[in-house]
Nucleic acid binder design. Structure first.
Length: 501
RNA sequence: GGGUGGUUAGCUCAGCCGGUAGAGCAGCGGACUUUUAAUCCGUUGGUCGCGAGUUCGAAUCUCGCACCACCUACCA
């Protein structure tokens, strides 16, 4: 891991050799990478602006435009050629004629390669097949591409290469570009949603002396000058609640968390979380807010609240179900009667049949949770809030007033996956201190995911935190859902991969 | 971590029962002044993922390793 970087590989590929020779010739003729070309027009803007114009009207008007982009297609026909340029907005065709640009330039153009970055100035016309085209008065090569692009028709299909060389994926695949544009719009929509409701966006530390706020294994790092061990954050929760203590009564943060755990189609070591906290609210309010948020973002970004994910249609308009774990188990497995699901012995027997590991210390809530996860979680396709989680597994959530063995907490499930997790916050400093102590004890006993005792967080609570509700939403998973992406790697620009070679 | 499948030219892919590798695109040379995956003629290009083994002979069969994908387990 700490080995020195390998020297860059010398690529002996013949195509690259030829392109290097072309670049060398360009260098000998002057500036090979000119930086004085100015673009005034984007492809999509031109298509939109002249959508209704016939060539009879367009060509005589001699509308001057300056476009630039990557050459994706090239068709040479003796004394005239067509090229297709791609810019950030889309594609536009360019017509290069010996009569218009001169024999020398056209001859040079014939030796430019797919992938080269070009600038074209000229006038608009429509070809006989009615395609809007720039007739070049001048055409320049701005940046030579040394590496050949994937095949123009099939594009890049190799999953590994799409992830490792995202830049090539983005050049070749419109659908990939669209996913990341949507991701950006979703994050923007969420940001606007909270700002419009008077929330303050904040940034809290990514490097924590004590990792907290979730049950997960952290990454460890070291600060040299301070000579101290630091952890990449597994959640921002404890810092955001310190801010609520400080008087920022409505805060949110959209940022990265890091968890040193397995990698899968649903897990990347770094992932983006939205967390938000609002004082003088409870978890019921959060559920309402979450429904509104997801509906509004879907409407804004997709234009609809009917979402198809991997062949399953989700209705985000309908009020989301709200069920306790026992109710959910009963609803999807009617053979488990509600009365029985409240009996410890019944649950132990049921779990034994499923061969689920249980501990003598597991109480009613824990047993229900285990049966729920085993039998029911994957069946929650339509948006469903599951409420009342056991206090044992919710060390930061407020205990229920009637039954302190459960908490005022919910998790939102869609397509059988957890999308959000929220609760009325525990603001009793003495209760919090006891729960930390229990977690610390579990950690000593070998539970690597158990929390540390965070004395400063308890000290903050001792100044008094207003009753508060807080929630976290996994942005990557939400984006997967809204873009119909099967893998989390499809919605993360540069997913974590094993080292090449 | 466990299971299944994959890895052949820059890219997309063929390659049968083992006989030492092929197409299309891209590239190079030529023809072509409205093409659009342009077309037509010619042509260069390979450590068949890596390493062993079986065999007269391995891209092909066997074993090991690496990486990727999918399923599964933990999690968000």
């Amino acid at each position: 891991m700490t080995e020195p970087q390998q020297p860059p590989q010398v690529d002996t590929n013949k195509i690259i050799e030829e392109r290097r020779a072309k670049l060398q010739a360009l260098r000998e003729n002057g500036q090979a990478f000119p930086n004085d070309a100015r673009r005034t027009d984007l492809a999509a803007d031109l298509h939109a602006a002249y959508a209704g114009k016939e060539n009879a009207e367009l060509e005589p008007a001699a509308i001057k435009v300056a476009v630039a982009g990557r050459m994706m297609l090239k068709r040479v026909m003796g004394k005239a050629s067509f090229a297709t340029l791609q810019d950030m907005s889309g594609r536009i065709q360019v017509y290069v004629q010996t009569d218009a640009v001169g024999a020398e330039v056209h001859e040079a153009f014939k030796h430019w390669d797919l992938g080269d970055i070009l600038a074209v100035e000229g006038t608009l016309f429509r070809t006989k097949t009615n395609e809007l085209t720039v007739k070049a008065q001048s055409i320049r090569l701005l940046a030579k591409s040394l590496r050949p692009l994937p095949e123009k028709f099939h594009g890049l299909t190799d999953q590994e290469q799409k992830y490792r060389q995202r830049y090539v994926d983005l050049i070749m695949n419109t659908e990939s570009r669209a996913v990341f544009v949507k991701r950006s719009q979703i994050v923007q929509g969420i940001r606007e949603f909270f700002v419009a409701r008077g929330y303050l966006e904040v940034e809290t530390p990514m490097m924590h002396p004590i990792p907290g706020g979730a049950a997960a294994r952290p990454f460890v790092t070291h600060h040299n000058a301070l000579d101290m061990q630091l952890y990449l954050r597994i959640a921002p929760e404890l810092y955001l609640k310190r801010l609520v203590v400080g008087g920022f009564e409505k805060v949110f943060e959209i940022n990265r968390n890091f968890r040193n755990e397995g990698i899968s189609t649903r897990h990347n070591p770094e992932f983006t979380m939205l967390e938000f906290y609002e004082a003088y609210r409870d978890y019921h309010y959060l559920m309402d807010l979450t429904e509104t948020l997801i509906r509004e973002v879907a409407r804004k970004v997709l234009g609809t609240t009917t979402v198809t994910y991997q062949g399953t249609t989700l209705d985000l308009e309908r009020k989301f179900d709200r069920l306790t774990m026992a109710q959910a188990i009963h609803q999807y497995h009617p053979e488990h009667a509600l009365d029985d699901l409240a009996k410890v012995d019944y649950l132990r027997a049921a779990l034994a049949r499923h061969e689920v590991e249980v501990f003598p210390t597991d109480g009613l809530g824990m047993l229900q949770l285990k049966l729920f996860e085993q039998t029911t979680e994957e069946k929650l396709i339509q948006p469903t809030f599951i409420i009342a989680h056991p206090t044992d597994v919710s060390p930061l959530a407020r205990a229920n007033d009637r039954d302190p063995s459960i908490t005022d907490r919910f998790e939102l499930f869609m397509t059988g996956r957890e999308i959000a997790n929220g609760f009325s916050e525990l603001n009793d400093p003495e209760d919090q201190a006891e729960r930390f102590a229990a977690q610390a004890k579990a950690k000593e006993a070998g539970d690597e995911e158990a929390m540390y005792y965070d004395a400063d967080y308890v000290r903050a609570l001792e100044y008094g935190m207003p009753p508060t509700a807080g929630e976290g939403i996994g942005i990557d998973r939400l984006v997967m859902l809204l873009t119909d992406s099967p893998s989390i790697r499809d919605v993360i620009l540069f997913p974590q991969m094993r080292q090449e070679d």
